[in-house]
């Protein structure tokens, strides 16, 4: 836990990381993880998302679920910036081993309220080693 969060008195936001490891369809993990992120956004914590393994497919462009009769929720990721969820760590190795590049992912942006509401990319490409550092900095890691 961060030193700040340990103190008595006023509550300092905790660092929450939601780790997405599964493909968007095939199992319900991605959808129900997103439901947690949406509810969690109301609690004013410091939220980050991580996408690794097949989880990188959750952000893939051009998803079309008509043929499988599943609800498409891919667009919801683009709305998360409005809820203060602006850090999407995507693991490079997971993209590479699946033949994907940043260009295969949706463009996800947020308006930076600390910088004249400039539109900035939410996706942060990180190596596996860098992602492990991000994980080490968290107070709460929820893995799906």
């Amino acid at each position: 836990m961060s030193e700040a969060a340990k103190g008595t008195g006023k509550k300092v936001p905790k660092k929450f990381l939601y780790v997405n490891r599964k493909a968007p369809y095939g199992t319900i993990y991605a959808l129900e993880a997103l439901e947690v992120v949406l509810i969690g956004a109301a609690f004013d914590q410091d939220v980050s998302l991580a996408f690794l393994d097949d989880g990188v497919f959750q952000l893939a462009n051009g998803q079309d679920t008509k043929g499988i009769g599943m609800k498409k929720f891919a667009n919801t990721y683009r709305a998360l910036g409005d809820y203060g969820v602006t850090k999407f760590y995507v693991e490079k190795e997971s993209l590479q081993s699946r033949g994907l590049t940043l260009g295969d992912l949706q463009e996800i942006t947020y308006e930076d309220e600390n910088d004249d509401f400039k539109e900035k990319p939410s996706i942060i490409l990180v190596s596996r080693a860098e992602l492990s550092e991000v994980m080490a900095q968290q107070d709460v890691v929820l893995s799906f």
């Binding site: 836990m1 509550k11 905790k14 929450f16 439901e35 947690v36 509810i39 969690g40 109301a42 609690f43 914590q45 107070d139 709460v140 890691v141 929820l142 893995s143 799906f144």
Partner: peptide, 20 residues
């Protein structure tokens, strides 16, 4: 109850341990 109870666990606990 709702998912807010889960988020509250993360905020209020020293350790949130996930079993999956």
């Amino acid at each position: 109850s709702g998912l807010g109870q889960l988020i509250e666990m993360g905020i209020e606990s020293d350790r949130l341990v996930v079993f999956g």
